[in-house]
Amino acid sequence: MTAGPETVEESPIPADAPLPSATLGGDSKRSLEQITLLLFITVPFVALLAAVPLAWGWGVSWLDLGLMTAMYFIGCHGITIGFHRYFTHGAFKARRPLRIALAVMGSLAVEGPLVRWVADHRKHHKFSDAAGDPHSPWRFGETVPALMKGLWWAHIGWMFDEEQTPQHKYAPDLIKDPAIRTVSRQFVLWTAVSLLFPPLVGGLATWSWQGALSAFFWGSLVRVALLHHVTWSINSICHAVGKRPFKSRDRSGNVWWLAVLSCGESWHNLHHADPTCARHGVLKGQLDSSARLIRWFEKVGWAYDVRWPQASRLDARREGGAVPGVPPGV
């Protein structure tokens, strides 16, 4: 899930000092960053693998499931509504408190600093499935072995690439905002909050270290691993398979079975056909919880100038004709 050419401008480098994450100097700092990234990927993934036998043998409490679900969808909507549809694409405008809240919620997903996330995804849209795309599964060719290698690259491998997206080029608007720049720089702090909140609640609720440890396993590690792989699947799976009812210049597809867990992001074909649209699931039966929440934000006045789907605009992008029954809003 990523930003589009309609939102990327070739802006001159501003006078602001570069973000630390964009200017890590020296091989030692780069190596430390990659080791840290590897730990954040592997440790939750091991927990995810261990979750099934542990749940089968020992069970899982309703408290653990509640914490895992709540933290999952807070972080997921922070990414889909905040990092993606709002900060990356400008699908709507937000009042200042909502703007900062979305920045913090997205940071709780532990997917990297806000400014870096947006820069990478805007670059993805500029070169989607072509030379320059940071994470296209078609990077190595169209044969089966090449696609298998490309899927791994699009899913995880690209994050270890030595080439860094220039943040001053792709996200100058966010760098100029002191509050957003601060949230982005505080990524380690929000990561700590994200990982420590579930065991704190679990420990206090059960008044035991066992309750805290169980909540950390399910509400922190398993939750982060699941959210990571769902998010990365939008980069990999949704650019390799799925239906393509709308015209786009890449291979983005709709993958229905990821819709609920991705909070509507897996209706990826429409997104690449109309990147600034606030709703991705525009056809009948396409669940999009992110669009629903944006609609609620609009109703209470927290969001405005929302770019809802327009039938005429979608008709022009439809493969083979008009789009029947597309609602003007949500």
Rank of each mutant, 00 (worst) to 15 (best):
L67Q: 08
K299C: 01
I294A: 02
S290M: 05
V8Y: 03
G253Y: 00
H228V: 03
W302N: 05
E6W: 12
P97E: 01
D288M: 01
G325W: 15
Y304M: 07
R122S: 13
A316K: 03
L49I: 12
K29P: 11
C76F: 02
W117L: 09
A154T: 09
S208V: 11
R95W: 06
F92E: 04
I81A: 08
A192E: 02
F160W: 14
K149C: 14
W62E: 06
W152I: 14
P324M: 11
V330K: 02
V230F: 10
S266H: 04
A55D: 06
A212K: 08
A322H: 08
L261H: 10
G329V: 05
M148V: 15
I294W: 05
P324W: 14
L293C: 06
A259G: 08
L226F: 15
A215Y: 07
R244T: 01
S290A: 15
W138E: 13
G106I: 08
K126Y: 08
L67Y: 04
R181G: 02
A131C: 11
H135Y: 14
I35W: 15
F216R: 04
G4P: 00
W257S: 03
H84Q: 12
A51W: 02
A130W: 06
P134N: 12
P324G: 09
I175K: 09
R96L: 13
I41E: 06
S312M: 05
D250P: 01
S289I: 14
G157K: 03
K243M: 01
H124L: 15
S31P: 00
L196W: 02
G57Y: 01
W58K: 06
R317Y: 06
P324F: 05
H84C: 04
I13E: 00
G321F: 11
L258F: 10
S248L: 03
G264Q: 06
I35G: 10
S11F: 13
L19T: 06
T191I: 07
L102K: 04
D173M: 05
M148L: 15
H268L: 01
E142V: 15
W153Y: 12
F83I: 13
T69L: 14
D315H: 12
Y72W: 10
K176H: 08
D16V: 03
L108W: 03
E10R: 14
D250E: 11
L98F: 00
H89W: 11
H121T: 10
D250F: 09
F73M: 08
P137G: 15
S208Q: 14
L174W: 03
E319Q: 09
G219L: 10
G78T: 03
V306Q: 12
K284N: 08
T23D: 15
G157L: 04
F297S: 03
L98A: 05
R96I: 09
A212D: 10
G112S: 12
C238W: 05
R116H: 05
L32V: 04
H124I: 14
